[in-house]
Simulated scan of single mutants.
Amino acid sequence: MDPLAATLTVLDYAAVAVFGASGALAAARRKHDIITFGFFAAVTGVGGGTLRDLLIDAPVFWVGRPEYIVACLAAALAIWILGWGQGRERLLLWLDALGMAAYAVVGALKATSLGVPPVSAVIMGVLTATFGGVLRDVLAHEPSILLRRELYVTPALVGAGVFVGLHALDLPLAVSGTMGFLAAFAVRSGAILFGWQMPGFPGRTPPT
């Protein structure tokens, strides 16, 4: 395996584990049992990639490689054993930002490698990076990331867009992938550190 492919594989597993841990944290807040921890972790960890593969008519990535589910369950077990607190949740927030940035690129890369058009490939990158979080919030009865003003979907869109755009210009994969990852992580970091938000609708709310 060449170094780039090895790096992408490591990022893929790491992102799944981090998203799985965020699902387990959602279960922890609700005081659920260990089985629910594992279920939340698995759904969150592989949800985005599953939707991507179904939409682009590719084999669902974790079915033939159950190590991805194992990574999610290991993350859930770690949260169960270590517990959670403000410090760990803050750390996970940053790890989630890294996972989101990596998954935006990995998702778009898989789509482009299968001949998906550029615009659709960007959307696949966004779905891969965010849909697991949407499922997590639904299961945990928490406000969806889609309904929050904080920047989360937007960084994934930026990262996938930068990657696909540079890839279309025939830049080396290492360059386009790194730039896409850094773009997504930079925007998400700004949201975490400085509270960056998208502007809301400026019009008046219609009377009810």
Rank of each mutant, 00 (worst) to 15 (best):
L11Y: 07
A14F: 12
K31M: 12
A24F: 06
I69K: 04
R65W: 08
V46E: 12
V16S: 07
P59M: 11
G38H: 04
A14E: 02
A75R: 07
V60N: 07
T44V: 02
A14H: 05
T44W: 04
I35N: 05
F39L: 09
F40I: 04
V16I: 13
D53G: 10
R65P: 03
F61M: 06
F19A: 03
I69V: 12
T36M: 11
A76H: 09
V43R: 10
R52Q: 01
H32T: 07
A27P: 11
D53L: 14
V63R: 03
G45T: 05
A58Q: 15
D53Q: 12
C72S: 10
H32V: 05
L54R: 14
G49T: 13
A76G: 03
V60W: 10
V70Q: 09
F39N: 00
I35T: 13
A24K: 11
V63E: 01
A24P: 01
V43L: 12
L11D: 08
L25F: 11
V18A: 14
Y13K: 09
D12L: 06
R30W: 09
A15C: 08
G20C: 10
A41V: 13
F39C: 01
F37W: 09
Y68A: 03
V46P: 06
V46Q: 15
G49R: 15
P66D: 03
A26C: 04
A71N: 04
F37V: 09
T50C: 11
C72K: 14
A28F: 13
G23M: 06
P59N: 08
A42M: 10
K31Q: 14
A24D: 14
D12H: 14
A74P: 13
F40M: 13
A17T: 03
I69S: 04
L77P: 00
L77Q: 01
A17W: 06
V18P: 01
V46A: 10
W62D: 03
A14C: 03
L73K: 01
V18I: 15
A24V: 08
I79E: 04
A58E: 14
W80V: 00
L77F: 03
G64V: 05
A71S: 08
W80Y: 08
G64T: 10
D12S: 05
A21H: 07
A14L: 07
W62A: 00
L25Q: 13
I79A: 04
W80F: 05
I34E: 10
L73W: 14
L54M: 15
V18C: 10
G45Y: 06
K31N: 15
